[in-house]
Structure formats: structure tokens, C-alpha cells
Design a protein around this nucleic acid. Structure first.
Lengths: 108, 108
DNA sequence: AACTATTTATTCGACATTTACGATAAATAT
DNA sequence: ATATTTATCGTAAATGTCGAATAAATAGTT
């Protein structure tokens, strides 16, 4: 990939952050991926991708206030940027175009 | 990726092979990707992915007869296997589910 | 109040797999 | 032979993956 492209996992994480809207942070993102994508993933992997997506300016983040529960450390909350939204849309429409060009004979 | 997952480029190549149906081989796949996906890619990259997808049993291949033109070396023709089709479908529906779960407020 | 243990979270460091390219090799028609 | 079309090889960079270390907050104990 040449820096701007979305990797397979990067795209999933971006979509999940959009799903979680106002409450997208590490562990929740991990759980959401495992549930919706039917795969396991470690929290370190999630954070790694989160960070790289931020460097690409596809995500922005801010700290929440600590939550009043045992161990309720402040969370790093993420949100998809305009650039991130655009990347998602491009990726999706490109693939849909490819799908629409597949001759019926080629697929069962 | 853990062996069975489709990488971002792997998925594109798979879709393009399906598009090209009966005439999917290296150079043509390269051209098709560059045209439909608006990106450049070298022939070596294409062949590399083609080979990996074959190892994953998402593609099968056979040699064509040489074509009667100057330099008409025989081509290695690819076709998406049932497993490949299944992987494409899974990937697509998983992402569509994620898209459908995005609250309107989250996207412009 | 201060200390320690426990819980929730993120960061760091290392390695594996995928993506990417330039150079090289193989086959065929002229 | 040689030019042309195509595929393969070797290596570098980006992405994906994990385990262990670190940080911040609360609950319990003295």
C-alpha cells in the first residue's frame, strides 16, 4: 500500500468506530470486531491500527473523563474524520463497481 | 491476517479475476485493476498475489495455448474457486452489515 | 491518610504476513 | 537471432499480529 490506501483491517476498524459513534475506544472496538466480524483480535492489535489510522488522519481522538467505577481510567475516544469517511466511501464504491461487472456465468 | 482472511489487494484481484471470467491472466488483470481502481500496480505484484491466492485455494489456474502473435507466450489463466467465491461473499456481507449499522449522525 | 491490591486502559517492542517493485528468465513469432 | 509478450525471483516497505510493560483510577486495609 502506498500510504493512503486502506488495509483490510484498517477498513474494518474504521467502520466499527463509525458504528460506535460517540463511544468508540479500544476494548469496545475489540469486542465489536469480534462479534460482528466473527474473528478474534487482541487489544494491542486494535490499538496499533487505531494509532496508524490516526497518523493517516482517518481518525481523530480525545480523552474522556474517567468513569466512576473501579479501574475506570479515562478512555481514548475515536471518531472518523471527513478524510476517513471519504476513504471508506471510495473503497466501498470501487468494490461495488467490481461486483456489478461480474458475469453471471462466473459465479454459482 | 491469519491465512484465510482476504487482504485488501487480494480481494480486488479476486474480484477482477471474476470480472475477466474466461480470460483472466497477469497483464490483463493488471490493466483492469489500474483502470477500474484508479491506481498503478506492477505486474510482479499482481503475480505475487495471484500465487498467494492459489495457495489459499481461492484461485485455480491452467495454461492457455500460445496465441499466434509475435511474442504470444502461453498465458496462465486464472479462475475463482468455490472457496474464493465464498470468501468474497463473506467479506462483502460482513462489511455491508457494518455499513448498515452506522448511525446517520456519524456520517456527513 | 497512606499504602497496596485490583481493575480498566493504553503504550511499547518484536515478529509475521501482505503489498510492492526492479531485474531476470522463459516462450514464441518474425 | 532478436524483438515481444509473459511469468518468476529476490528484496524492501507497509500492514497485521501479539505478549509484556506501563498508567490511571478505585477499593480495601492498616
Amino acid at each position: 500500500m502506498k500510504g493512503t490506501n486502506l488495509g483490510e483491517l484498517e477498513e474494518i476498524v474504521l467502520l466499527v468506530v463509525a458504528n460506535l459513534f460517540d463511544n468508540a475506544y479500544g476494548i469496545l472496538i475489540k469486542h465489536e470486531i469480534e462479534e460482528k466480524c466473527n474473528r478474534t483480535i487482541t487489544i494491542s492489535t486494535v490499538h496499533n491500527v487505531l494509532q496508524r489510522l490516526s497518523e493517516k488522519d482517518y481518525l481523530e481522538s480525545r480523552y474522556s473523563d474517567p468513569s466512576p467505577e473501579r479501574g475506570g481510567k479515562r478512555k481514548l475516544l475515536f471518531r472518523v474524520t471527513k478524510a476517513g469517511q471519504a476513504a471508506l466511501k471510495t473503497s466501498r464504491s470501487m468494490r461495488e463497481d467490481l461486483w456489478s461487472g461480474i458475469p453471471k456465468v462466473a459465479f454459482e
